[in-house]
Amino acid sequence: MKKILILGAALVATAASAASLTGSGSSFVYPLFTKVFSEYGKSGDSVNYQSVGSGAGQKALKDRVVDFAATDVPIPDADISGYPGKVLTIPAAMGAVVISYNIPGVDENLKFNGKILADIYLGKTKLWNDAALAKLNPGVKLPALPITVAHRSDGSGTTGVFTDYLSKVSSEWKTKVGSATAVQWPTGIGAKGTDGVSGVVKSTPGAIGYIELTYALNNKIDFGLVQNRTGAFVKPTIAGVQAAAANVVIPTSGITSLTNAGGATTYPISTFSYAIFYQEQKYGNRTLDQAKALKKMLTYVATSGQDFSEALYYAPLPAAAQSRARALIASMTFDGKKF
């Protein structure tokens, strides 16, 4: 009887020590987070992450209804002062935004440059056999098929990354549209989430869209090569994303853009995806145990969790990014004290 009682007490203690964390935001990182949090849950703590888009994730953190959020673009400077506490931003993943399309009869990986992509999304280039596209793709029989532009209808970090890239390669795009998680699109069909854009592209002959590499590969959607700053046309790959990260300096804030980075092998629409959370963890009804559980989970995401990246077509964080993330996580406080 004594052994049974002791075992029962141990089980109660284990259950009491397990934590449940909630997060929401980026759909870009959702496939990776699903795997990472599944593996992390084997340690006892659970993480419930909802793929609602970077914009909604930022709002959820601002409203303090989640422990953390994920976003592919940092909180805009104009908005950060409205948050009820200091927000920390750590690199959590790296990946590629690809130019996907559905052109019946065309099996080749088409080549795109910044001007062509800007003109398509500005509504200026309307047909797949446009002379500028044909010039980039000699020998490819492009049809006289109307281009159906697909874009996100919700606040999206993927939109932020793509429009950031377009703003760097097209002065016209920068002036007329700009870069943000939600913009006034000059043309096209809006769809919610990466799944929505993927669905439009896959079901619509002539469609073009910007989606994550992992979604394109898993849904068997064609995608193109994009010309980088050196003039090379680069296919989106893990190596191309790693090359982008190798050509930027990661500041102490942990925030930097990978779009249009230098390097001969760099894929130019690469990005970090970030986890965001409050530095001071004592707010509302939060306990020190909750804060410790969040700190432990974030450390796992930025370090051991990176082991699952490549199998899901993400690039593991480089050592410099992991170091920045650990330093920022270590600065978390509870009631003004580090823990």
Results as ranks from 00 to 15, higher is better:
A320W: 03
I189M: 09
N109L: 02
S257R: 02
L258D: 05
N48M: 11
A150K: 01
S100E: 03
T163Y: 01
T287P: 02
R229C: 11
Y40L: 13
P205G: 02
I99W: 01
K176M: 06
Q227K: 03
G105C: 07
E280Q: 09
Y49V: 15
I221P: 01
D107E: 07
G53L: 02
P74T: 11
G25P: 02
D119L: 10
I269T: 02
Q306F: 14
V241W: 05
R152I: 08
P138V: 10
V12A: 09
T181V: 13
Y49W: 13
Y215D: 01
L317Q: 08
V12E: 04
S171G: 09
G263Q: 13
I4A: 11
L166S: 06
L21W: 05
Y215K: 09
V161R: 00
V47P: 09
A243C: 11
P74N: 08
T237L: 14
N137S: 06
T252L: 08
Y83K: 07
P91C: 14
V201F: 00
I99H: 03
P268F: 08
L133A: 10
P91N: 11
K168T: 14
G199V: 12
N137P: 13
T303Y: 03
F308W: 07
T252S: 07
L288A: 14
V149H: 01
I90E: 02
D154V: 15
S198T: 11
A216R: 06
A320T: 06
K292R: 15
A9F: 10
E212Q: 04
A92L: 13
Y300E: 10
V140W: 01
V241P: 02
A291W: 04
G85D: 09
G254Y: 12
A92H: 07
G155V: 14
V241D: 06
R326M: 14
M1V: 15
A56V: 15
A131P: 00
